[in-house]
């Protein structure tokens, strides 16, 4: 049996603007999402800002009622059996809020241990284990207000695991964390996966999803547009290669943005994107299988100062960009 099954979940929000003349507007945040998560799986939900990831999670963790559709966790209905579902899930979101600032890390954990009905005699050992797992042993007596973002995030994860949930929801846990902290966080998440925890993760970092997820679903404007392993997604979307050209634009004629149309029209080119860098730009050209377009692309860039040129395999990010922008 799947740990989680979502069937055609939908959620509409009604927003009103104006004080006297109320204008009602309907936002269809989630428009028929279905997926399943198997035991022990680390499932990634990817999508641009506002795609409906958090809304989907909120329906699954019983904070929001679906407008229609249904979902079960361990066979329990998220609407009908909400309280039972809550015992089975852990919920962690990114950012530095969501903790009692003036309490110590230990008291934050003790409080949620009570809310999750962790028996008093097991609490000490459980909290000790979790502090060890997230690398906060020795800091537990300090107030959270003095914690860095990374420490807060790890404390959040410990909190989400207190009652040993069957399914852990991680909504953008790595947001705003420095590269070293983010790597440690990935190690922690990978460790949980290796212990057999079932996890639903959202992130905007494709390498993170690629490294961690067993399976990924891509959501765009409330609908799933693709589902599969990272390898399947890469293969499905971009069988081919990617040419990246580093450029240093001037103004007007020598601005690389003015050449996107020309490059895009070249035979063998699938799509072109300009990424702004610190000093120059990177022109990312998706190439059809078997085509060699490097010379033609450089020709089209005549007059613009060009740096490094590399041809590489498509990444999950390439696949993702194509999925959500098509």
């Amino acid at each position: 049996m799947s740990i989680l099954e979502a069937h055609d979940l939908r959620r509409t929000f009604t927003t009103t603007t104006g004080v006297l003349r109320r204008n009602r507007k309907e936002v269809e945040a989630v428009r028929g999402v279905s997926f399943a998560i198997e035991p022990g799986e680390l499932f990634g939900l990817l999508g641009p800002n506002g795609a409906g990831k958090t809304t989907t999670i909120k329906m699954l963790i019983t904070l929001l009622l679906p407008t229609s559709g249904s979902a079960t966790i361990l066979g329990l209905d998220v609407v009908r059996d909400a309280r039972e579902v809550r015992r089975q899930i852990g919920y962690v979101f990114g950012g530095d809020r969501g903790l009692y600032e003036r309490l110590s890390a230990l008291d934050n954990l003790r409080y949620f241990a009570e809310l999750y009905a962790v028996p008093a005699r097991d609490q000490r050992a459980r909290i000790g284990e979790l502090l060890e797992l997230v690398g906060l042993t020795g800091r537990e007596k300090e107030r959270v207000e003095g914690f860095s973002r990374g420490m807060r995030q790890r404390l959040h994860i410990a909190r989400g695991l207190l009652h040993d949930p069957a399914l852990l929801f991680l909504d953008e846990p790595s947001i705003g964390i420095d590269p070293v902290g983010a790597r440690e966080l990935r190690q922690t998440i990978a460790g949980l996966r290796d212990q057999g925890k079932t996890i639903l993760l959202t992130t905007h970092y494709m390498f993170e999803a690629d490294e961690l997820c067993d399976r990924i679903a891509v959501i765009r404007t409330g609908e799933l547009v693709a589902q599969g392993t990272p390898a399947q997604l890469k293969a499905r979307v971009t069988a081919g290669s990617v040419v990246e050209v580093e450029t240093f634009s001037g103004v007007g004629e020598t601005d690389v943005r003015g050449r996107v149309g020309v490059v895009g029209a070249l035979a063998g080119v699938r799509s072109v994107v300009v990424d702004d860098g610190a000093v120059g730009e990177t022109l990312v050209v998706q190439v059809e299988p078997g085509a060699d377009v490097t010379a033609a692309v450089l020709g089209a860039l005549r007059g613009i100062r060009v740096g490094r040129v590399v041809t590489r395999e498509p990444t999950l990010e390439d696949a993702y960009v194509q999925l959500v922008s098509s």
Binding site: R86, R87, R97, G98, E101, E114, L115
Partner: peptide
Amino acid sequence: WMQTLGIVLSTPA
């Protein structure tokens, strides 16, 4: 303000 409400309400307490 602490943004703990969502977490508290997602517990079975």
